[in-house]
């Protein structure tokens, strides 16, 4: 029983990271209407910025905050340079452009920070034992960070004027425009938000694992899977799907082994899409 509980905690933590990345993807999809493949590399860039700043200041929290700001800046810059020009083009054109953006970000990260792996210099601590279940203090910290990030995102989306405008644009861009909502300002807010969420996901992933220029790109597939499972364009769905996939994957390992655990999450994705083609939380409204 304790073994399962520990597997679940592990899955929950992996799921939170995947879920945050999926949230960034789904935010962009909901409003700009394309799958942003640069999400992974924005994660990487955020992690590297956080790593440098925390190395210089000695505080991972300051590093993480600056990393999130850098992620927002990257999002906005990328929007102005690329995606603003591509507005109105097909989602495939935008997707391909975002893959190009991903390559460029990764190349810049590689040149600046080199390719050797780096780690956040955090003390490794032995776990607490709660009911004989191993709970790691660092996991608790990361979970708090994830919850704070989610709370901020949902506050912005549901309790601020700009969030309301973003949701309006997501709902019906034409109607939003004739109601006097400036698309550019919504887009800036969107890209800043998505960029900083990506960066936070990257920092969390970097703290859990190692920081390399490829780390974000490697996360892209699970994050896409979670975004689709949650119902693409649906923020709550992305988070829930990330956590669901993460925990199912880990809890299945005693039965299917480790080499097939990735396959398990895609089997779950398949089954859900067969039953509910719009994803767990997606609305049935045909082509979105």
């Amino acid at each position: 029983m304790t073994a399962y509980a520990e597997l679940m905690i592990g899955g929950l933590m992996s799921g939170l990271v995947v879920g945050l990345a999926a949230l960034a993807i789904t935010l962009v999809f909901g409003i700009a209407r394309f799958a942003n493949a640069a999400t992974g590399d924005t994660m990487t860039a955020g992690a590297y910025v956080a790593l440098s700043v925390s190395g210089a200041t000695g505080s991972v929290i300051v590093g993480g905050l600056v990393g999130a700001l850098a992620g927002a800046a990257i999002g906005v810059v990328v929007y102005f340079l690329i995606f603003r020009k591509l507005a109105g083009r097909s989602s495939v054109a935008n997707l391909l452009a975002s893959i190009g953006v991903a390559f460029i970000i990764r190349a810049i990260v590689g040149v600046i920070f080199e390719h050797q792996q780096q780690v956040f210099q955090l003390p490794l601590v032995r776990p607490w034992r709660i009911l004989d279940i191993r709970v790691q203090p660092s996991d608790l910290n990361l979970a708090i960070v994830a919850v704070l990030t989610l709370a901020t995102v949902f506050l912005i989306l549901y309790a601020t004027p700009v969030g309301r405008r973003m949701r309006a644009v997501a709902d019906d861009p034409g109607l939003a425009r004739i109601s006097g909502i400036s698309p550019t300002r919504v887009m800036i807010a969107l890209w800043a938000l998505a960029g900083s969420v990506s960066a936070v996901a990257g920092v969390m992933y970097g703290i859990k694992t190692v920081v390399t220029p490829e780390m974000g790109w490697d996360m892209l597939l699970p994050a896409f899977a979670a975004a689709i499972l949650g119902g693409i364009g649906h923020p709550v769905g992305a988070i829930c799907a990330g956590i669901l996939l993460g925990t199912i994957q880990e809890m299945a390992t005693p039965f299917v082994g480790f080499t097939y655990k990735l396959a398990i999450s895609f089997v779950v994705l398949l089954i859900v899409l067969l039953v509910r083609p719009s994803g767990l939380f997606g609305r049935n409204e045909g082509a979105r």
């Binding site: 597997l7 592990g10 933590m13 490697d218 880990e250 080499t259 655990k261």
Partner: peptide, 20 residues
């Protein structure tokens, strides 16, 4: 004996099996 996949956010379940 455990065989694990690359690029995982965590290898805790793999470790758990080996350590058991």
């Amino acid at each position: 004996a455990v065989v694990y996949e690359p690029n995982q956010p965590s290898y805790r379940s793999e470790l758990q099996k080996v350590l058991a």
